[in-house]
Design a protein around this nucleic acid. Structure first.
Length: 811
RNA sequence: GCGAGAGUGGCGGAACUGGCAGACGCGCGAGACUUAGGAUCUCGUGGGCAACCGUGGGGGUUCAAGUCCCCCCUCUCGCACCA
């Protein structure tokens, strides 16, 4: 294939230039407006960069280059989320230290990124595995600990006795270990947990402050899962004590016909009668053996066992049988419910199975066929106290809820309550390759290390095998493990858990602002200048966890005065997934993985960048097409030939004389379209407009510098290498990246001639061409001449004229 | 099941607040230049011989609907007994 230009030579040349002159360094210049443009930093895996990564990175790179040309001080950094399981698994297998493989992988990623021409400020590169970085991750943990937001709990883990290790969820396939296929059981272990639930309300509330995709906002809201209801106390019938339940439907309290406790509920033993004890114990044991996954299987029938005990409905004194069933979860609400089968689908199904009574208290449905659960429709019935002192009969459920909640509170029988689906965050892994906790255990108590002793460095070892006890491999390192408590001098044992991968990625955007600060996490002045992140681009797989955890830490840092904004990421965009050419998800097993290095070998970085953006809307899922890359290559070659001869010199067709009015219009329309499209991240249509420009200019025998030069500037954020070369060939000193962005003249974006479509009854029948300022009368007269035969001499009923747009005759 | 988003040529996709459906690219067809072409350039390309018909399907609003309203179908993503 003959090439219009030598992409290898040009790309190497300009990458070397950028390396030497560093035009993309961000300076802390308060005199300039700032733009913080951030990619989700990658885990440097062994397989290198993927074309899916490149999509997001190219998009932010275009925006960054564009914003610089618009006079912004742009912060566009890159780093590595480099702790994590794959490197450790590899170390277990080969004995090669994770730090070694991580460094190799980072080198590969970095080389590939530079090859794509991504304009990162590499002086700010950070890695979560660097002690100078994780020192501050540990520091934040100490702050969380000080504020009571980090605590220790016994939490079940996936314990694999055969492997002698704890497994991550992704290491388990169909209930067996991915490696070896061994059994996995639940085993409680001492773990660190972060109290994210303390921030549930703010995490929900502040979603109003960000410009995020609707779906992501929705997912976060659902994940937090705030629901308002009441907690109500039911006295136990035959024993002392009360059963507290949570309900969102206190309006159905008179319809309760039984109660259900989670099998793990602490009151189960007290309630269970002697006769039922055996059955209850058997059920509880069976439940304990089930994995979370089995317990969550929805289509299974509901099961449960009667405890033999009763509780008393506080509103009508009825004795309600108390059951245990695994459809009630200990971890939500109070772990106990009142069952109202008439108005709750789960209770309805359970009542049907065990032939428990179903009592209607909201009229409007047919409760013998299905639970009636609406709150906006229906009328409360059968809901008054025996003495008639209180009634919600006749109300709509939505009105009855606050009424009865207030009444319960006055009676001391209940209280308004809010619950969240959000759980506290399990913040510990039984692994080597993660941040050590700055915690010592002294006499069974956790003691934080003093800040001055940070970082607590991950100890060197060459044994990454599991300890066998479920503790991390750090438990094998006796010398490191044994220490003394700095406060008392007593012997102490170091915490052996390490932090999860989320930890380092929770706050990295802050460190980019001030990556080398040895005394603080980030300088307050720099933080105020650069925050918040103006544009954050990354995959939607992080829509909940990473983005929620980050927001949580950010709010804590805000509370302690480290950061100045309530939210870290102002605008968020998820790039879509790039499918293989066969429209299937790319995977090694399908053999449809596209390697960016191969593509760049063949077509060059500029073509790959342009194609990534031309495929379709950034956020859409779309298939790769190598033919499409060829098409883009043709476009770049056409641009090249617009101004360069076969010998590589500036072409004679490039002239200094003024462009025609039509060429000027085309240029200004192109500037307008490309500018607006970059602002809206519509890169595909921006490229399409540049193709239109190129096609038109190809037809011209003479091309004025006055239109070619601004065009090269427009192209430069998309295809920076070839644009630099063209800019140089046009006789300008480097670098195109330091030129101001072209400005369009609105007067030149509109044509002086218009083609007005003429319709009869809304159907296109003709067109008339007129001057841009033609009055309606002229357009109508010309139009009538054109469509005479359609009017058949009759006068139209109505004539609609939309100025400069369309003429429609209604007959 | 619930929640969110999306269905437009052979393919990827355009179409601003309702106003010429299919921009641009791929593919395909014809031609030019060539010893040659999987290079390059030019022209054509939704369907139908036509009247006409065409934006997942069916209704509706309107002079005018891919766009607005109602019902249905399909696909993708997320959640999944959260009381």
């Amino acid at each position: 294939m003959s090439k219009g230009y030598d992409h290898r030579a040009i790309e190497a040349k300009w990458q070397a230039y950028w390396e030497e002159h560093r035009p993309f360094t961000a300076t802390d210049d308060p005199g300039k407006p700032k733009f913080y443009c951030l990619d989700m930093f990658p885990y440097p895996s062994g397989s290198g960069l993927h074309v899916g990564h490149l999509e997001g990175y190219t998009a932010t790179d275009i925006v960054s280059r564009y914003k610089r040309m618009r006079g912004f001080n742009v912060l566009h950094p890159m780093g590595w989320d480099a702790f994590g399981l794959p490197a450790e698994q590899y170390a277990v297998k080969t004995g090669i230290h994770p730090a070694v493989t991580t460094a190799q992988n980072i080198a590969t990623f970095k080389r590939q990124m530079k090859r794509v021409g991504l304009s990162y400020d590499w002086e700010r590169e950070i890695s979560t595995t660097d002690p100078d970085y994780y020192r501050w991750t540990q520091w934040i943990f100490l702050k969380l600990f000080e504020r009571g937001l980090a605590y220790v709990a016994e939490v079940p883990v996936n314990w694999c006795p055969a492997l002698g290790t704890v497994l991550a969820n992704e290491e388990i396939v169909d209930g067996k270990s991915e490696v070896g296929g061994f059994d996995v059981v639940r085993k409680p272990m001492r773990q660190w947990v972060l109290k994210i639930t303390a921030y549930a309300d703010r995490l929900l509330e502040d979603l109003k402050l960000v410009e995020w995709p609707a779906s992501t906002l929705e997912m976060q809201k659902n994940w937090i899962g705030r629901s308002i209801g009441a907690e109500v106390d039911f006295q136990l019938a035959d024993t002392r004590g009360a059963l507290r339940i949570f309900t969102t439907r206190p309006d159905t309290l008179f319809g309760a016909t039984y109660m259900v406790l989670a099998p793990e509920h602490p009151l189960v033993d007290a309630i269970t009668s002697a006769a039922q004890k055996a059955a209850v114990d058997a059920y509880r044991e069976a439940t304990a053996r089930k994995s979370d996954l089995q317990r969550q299987e929805l289509d299974k029938d509901k099961t449960g066992v009667f405890t033999g005990g009763y509780a008393v409905n506080p509103v009508n004194g009825e004795r309600l049988p108390v059951w245990i069933a695994d459809y009630v979860l200990m971890s939500y609400g109070t772990g106990a419910i009142m069952a109202v089968p008439a108005h709750d689908e789960r209770d309805w199904a359970f009542a049907r199975t065990y032939r428990l009574p179903i009592r209607e208290v909201i009229a409007g449905g047919n409760v013998s066929e299905a639970a009636f659960v609406e709150t906006e429709r229906g009328t409360v019935v059968n809901s008054a106290t025996a003495d008639g002192s209180f009634s919600i009969n006749g109300l709509k459920p939505a009105e009855a809820i606050p009424t009865i909640t207030e009444w319960l509170a006055k009676q001391g029988k209940g209280v308004k309550a809010v619950n969240y689906k959000l759980r506290d965050w399990l913040f510990a892994r039984q692994r080597y390759w993660g941040e050590p906790f700055p915690i010592n255990w002294v006499d069974g108590e956790s003691r934080p290390l003093p800040e001055e002793q940070l970082p607590l460095v991950l100890p060197e070892t060459n044994n990454f095998k599991p300890s066998g006890t479920g503790e991390s491999p750090l438990a094998n390192l006796g010398d490191w493990l044994a220490t003394t408590d700095p406060a008392t001098g007593k012997p102490a044992r170091r915490e052996t858990n390490t932090m999860p991968q989320w930890a380092g990625s929770c706050w990295y955007y802050l460190r980019f602002i001030d990556p080398k600060n040895a005394t603080r996490l980030v300088d307050p002045g720099k933080e105020r200048y650069w925050m918040p992140v103006d544009l954050y681009v990354g995959g939607s797989e992080h829509a909940v966890l990473h983005l929620l955890y980050s927001r949580f830490w950010h709010k804590v840092l805000c509370d302690i005065g480290v950061v100045s904004t309530p939210e870290p990421f102002k605008k968020l965009v998820h790039q879509g997934i790039v499918l293989g050419e066969d429209n299937q998800k790319m995977s090694k097993s399908r053999g449809n993985v596209v390697n960016p290095d191969d593509m760049m070998d063949q077509f060059g970085a500029d073509a790959v960048r342009l194609y990534e953006m031309f495929m379709g809307p950034l956020e859409a899922m779309k298939p790769w097409s190598t033919r499409g890359v060829e098409g883009i290559t043709r476009f770049l070659e056409r641009v090249w030939r617009l101004m360069v001869t076969d010998e590589g010199r500036l072409s004679d067709t490039v002239v200094a004389s003024a462009p025609s009015l039509d060429q000027q219009r085309l240029l200004h329309q192109t500037i307008k379209k490309v500018t607006e499209d970059i602002e809206e991240l519509r890169f595909n249509t921006a490229i399409s407009q540049m193709m239109v420009f190129t096609n038109e200019m190809t037809k011209a025998g003479q091309r004025s510098r006055a239109v070619l030069e601004p065009f090269v500037l427009l192209l430069s954020p998309f295809a920076p290498h070839v644009s630099e070369e063209l800019w140089a060939l046009l006789g300008h000193p480097a670098s195109v990246s330091q030129q101001p962005w072209p400005v369009f003249d609105p007067a030149l974006t509109v044509s002086d001639r218009l083609t007005i479509p003429v319709q009869v009854n809304g159907k296109l029948r003709s067109k008339v061409e007129v001057g841009a300022d033609a009055p309606r009368e002229l357009v109508e007269r010309l139009a009538r001449e054109q469509i005479g035969e359609w009017l058949q001499g009759k006068e139209p009923k109505k004539v609609i004229y939309v100025d400069k747009k369309l003429m429609n005759f209604v007959v």
